[in-house]
């Protein structure tokens, strides 16, 4: 095939937008699109955070924002405070227990939802529902479920003859903690389930089938094949849960307000009570910042794991 050399392409084809437009300028476009997020982070996260650090070293109260520098006095005071010590222990207990429960339940639920059965879509929707429910609304329902007079749990246990006497859910520190953990697990496990489900979808079908043919029982397949392959994404889910749980204020505040006798406070609810309700901004900030170093470490590990899960090593 000889090329015809006598034909010259003179006229450029009629193309709209022949000059580079804004949409072609990736450098500029990137900055423009990042600006709102940047503004949001600086104004609503960065500034309050810096302010909190500042406040934790001051004797500021809600009445006067005079930032009188007191050094580490706020930290020294709260560390000696028995309520604070209790709140630290509660936070750790609340976080660890609920994350263990959430992880076990999420892996179980994901395995169930991964199987093929009629009504699977409806089931997925129902399982996700607690996550989508507004926390204040859900807490209202749960306060009734745990109500000292009308508790439906007590009523049910009574009917089945499993309960002698009466459980005062929010009147007893241990029961109150159980109630808080239950509601938190109920609220956060759907999200963990979705994450684990996504992780399971990423495991090639061949590997599961190879395990079936190689003679692995359900448990062997779960513990030797599926869980190891899910480990990176489950780790991400757990670390996410740890951050989310140890900084959560709403459940404790809405259910018990830290009661009875300030026995169920976690750090964030105590910080809220001291700093906002009690107007001691300095101490509140110090309490709120106490877990920061731990969370920074957790977040770093989390990001690394997320990267590894992405790369698929």
């Amino acid at each position: 095939m000889a090329l015809r050399k006598d034909v010259r392409v003179d006229a450029a084809p009629a193309v709209a937008f022949r000059h580079a437009t804004l949409a072609d300028r990736e450098d500029l476009l990137g900055r423009i699109m990042l600006t709102p997020a940047l503004v949001y982070v600086i104004v609503l996260v960065g500034l309050p955070f810096a302010l909190a650090i500042l406040l934790s070293f001051s004797a500021a109260s809600a009445g006067s924002l005079a930032l009188s520098w007191v050094g580490v006095e706020n930290f020294a005071t709260i560390i000696r405070d028995s309520q604070f010590q209790r709140a630290v222990l509660n936070t750790v207990f609340f976080t660890v227990t609920s994350q263990i429960l959430v992880t076990v339940m999420a892996v179980a639920a994901a395995n169930v939802l991964d199987a093929a059965f009629a009504g699977k879509r409806a089931m997925r929707f129902l399982i996700l529902l607690p996550w989508a429910a507004p926390v204040s609304l859900a807490s209202m329902a749960w306060t009734w479920i745990f109500d000292s007079t009308f508790s439906v749990i007590n009523w049910t246990l009574k009917v089945f003859g499993l309960l002698e006497g009466w459980l005062y859910w929010f009147g007893d520190p241990a029961l109150a903690m159980i109630a808080i953990i239950s509601v938190h697990v109920w609220r956060t496990f759907p999200f963990a389930t979705v994450i684990v489900l996504a992780g399971m979808a990423a495991i090639p079908q061949d590997i599961n089938e190879a395990a079936l043919i190689d003679g692995a029982s359900f448990w062997r397949k779960l513990f030797q094949v599926n869980l190891p392959l899910l480990l990176p994404i489950v780790t991400v889910s757990v670390l996410f849960g740890v951050v989310f749980t140890s900084t959560d204020l709403s459940i404790v505040w809405l259910l018990t307000r830290g009661g009875p006798y300030n026995s169920t406070h976690v750090l964030s609810s105590l910080a809220f009570q001291r700093g906002i309700m009690g107007a001691d901004l300095g101490q509140g900030a110090a309490i709120a910042l106490f877990l920061l170093p731990v969370l920074v470490i957790v977040a770093t590990v989390m990001l690394r794991m997320a990267r590894r899960a992405e790369v698929g090593v």
Binding site: P204, D206, I207, E209, A210, A211, L212, I213, D214, G215, A216, S217, Q224, V225, P228, L229
Partner: peptide
């Protein structure tokens, strides 16, 4: 009879080795 009891061994196109 489930796959494990059929006495079959399969080699997959992807080999389906356990990556971990």
């Amino acid at each position: 009879v489930p796959p494990r009891a059929r006495g079959v061994a399969m080699v997959f196109q992807s080999y389906a080795l356990y990556p971990h």
